[in-house]
Amino acid sequence: LELTLRVGDKTWHFKDVDEEFVRHLEELLKRGAHEREIEEIIREWLR
Rank of each mutant, 00 (worst) to 15 (best):
L1K: 14
L1W: 13
L1V: 09
L1N: 14
E2A: 05
L3P: 02
L3N: 02
L3K: 03
L3A: 04
L3H: 06
L3D: 01
T4A: 07
T4M: 07
T4H: 09
T4Q: 07
L5G: 00
L5T: 01
L5K: 00
L5N: 00
R6Q: 15
R6V: 15
R6L: 14
R6E: 14
R6A: 14
R6W: 06
R6F: 04
R6S: 15
R6C: 02
V7D: 01
V7K: 01
V7I: 11
V7T: 03
V7L: 12
G8W: 02
G8S: 02
G8R: 01
G8E: 02
G8T: 01
G8H: 03
G8C: 02
G8N: 08
G8Q: 02
G8F: 03
G8P: 00
G8D: 02
D9Y: 02
D9A: 05
D9V: 03
D9R: 03
D9G: 08
D9W: 02
D9Q: 07
D9K: 05
D9C: 04
D9F: 03
K10W: 07
K10G: 03
K10N: 10
K10F: 10
K10A: 07
T11D: 08
T11P: 00
T11V: 15
T11H: 10
T11F: 08
T11S: 04
T11N: 04
T11Y: 09
T11R: 02
T11L: 12
W12Q: 00
W12H: 02
W12E: 00
W12R: 00
W12N: 00
W12V: 02
W12C: 01
W12A: 00
W12M: 03
H13Q: 06
H13T: 11
H13P: 01
H13Y: 15
F14T: 00
F14E: 00
F14R: 00
K15H: 09
K15L: 08
K15W: 08
K15N: 09
K15Y: 09
K15C: 02
K15T: 08
K15P: 05
K15I: 06
D16P: 13
D16Y: 14
D16C: 02
D16W: 14
D16T: 13
D16H: 13
D16F: 13
V17M: 05
V17I: 10
V17L: 04
V17R: 09
V17Y: 06
V17F: 04
D18Y: 05
D18A: 09
D18G: 03
D18P: 12
D18E: 10
E19N: 08
E19K: 15
E19F: 15
E19R: 15
E19W: 15
E19M: 12
E20R: 11
E20K: 15
E20N: 14
E20I: 12
E20D: 14
E20Q: 13
E20T: 12
F21T: 04
F21V: 04
F21N: 02
F21H: 02
F21M: 05
F21Y: 02
F21S: 05
F21I: 04
V22Y: 07
V22F: 06
V22G: 02
V22K: 05
V22A: 04
V22W: 03
V22N: 01
R23I: 09
R23F: 08
R23V: 05
R23S: 10
R23P: 01
R23D: 05
R23L: 12
H24W: 07
H24C: 03
H24P: 01
H24K: 12
H24E: 13
H24M: 12
H24F: 09
L25R: 00
L25A: 04
L25D: 00
L25G: 01
L25S: 01
L25W: 02
E26T: 09
E26V: 10
E26R: 11
E26H: 10
E26I: 11
E26Q: 13
E26P: 00
E26Y: 11
E26M: 11
E26D: 08
E27G: 10
E27F: 08
E27S: 10
E27A: 12
E27D: 15
E27N: 13
E27K: 10
E27Q: 11
E27H: 10
L28H: 07
L28E: 07
L28P: 01
L29G: 04
L29W: 05
L29P: 01
L29C: 07
L29N: 04
K30A: 12
K30C: 07
K30L: 11
K30E: 12
R31I: 10
R31H: 11
R31F: 10
R31V: 11
R31E: 11
R31K: 14
R31W: 10
G32R: 00
G32L: 03
G32D: 05
G32V: 04
G32T: 03
G32M: 03
A33N: 07
A33H: 10
A33F: 09
A33S: 08
A33P: 03
A33T: 14
A33V: 13
H34F: 04
H34Y: 07
H34C: 05
H34M: 09
H34G: 13
H34T: 15
H34N: 14
H34A: 13
E35S: 08
E35P: 13
E35N: 09
E35G: 06
E35K: 06
E35M: 08
E35C: 03
R36H: 15
R36N: 14
R36G: 13
R36W: 13
R36D: 15
E37T: 07
E37A: 07
E37N: 02
E37C: 09
E37Q: 09
E37M: 06
E37W: 06
I38N: 01
I38E: 01
I38G: 00
I38Q: 02
E39L: 08
E39T: 10
E39P: 01
E39F: 06
E39S: 06
E39K: 04
E40R: 12
E40I: 09
E40G: 10
E40C: 05
I41D: 04
I41K: 11
I41P: 00
I41F: 15
I41N: 08
I41W: 13
I41S: 09
I41G: 04
I41Y: 15
I41H: 10
I42K: 00
I42M: 03
I42V: 06
I42H: 08
I42N: 01
I42P: 00
I42G: 00
R43A: 12
R43V: 14
R43E: 14
R43F: 11
E44L: 07
E44A: 08
E44I: 05
E44R: 06
E44Y: 05
E44G: 05
E44V: 07
W45Q: 05
W45T: 03
W45C: 01
L46Y: 11
L46T: 05
L46G: 03
L46Q: 09
L46H: 07
R47A: 15
R47W: 11
R47C: 05
R47G: 13
R47D: 12
R47Q: 14
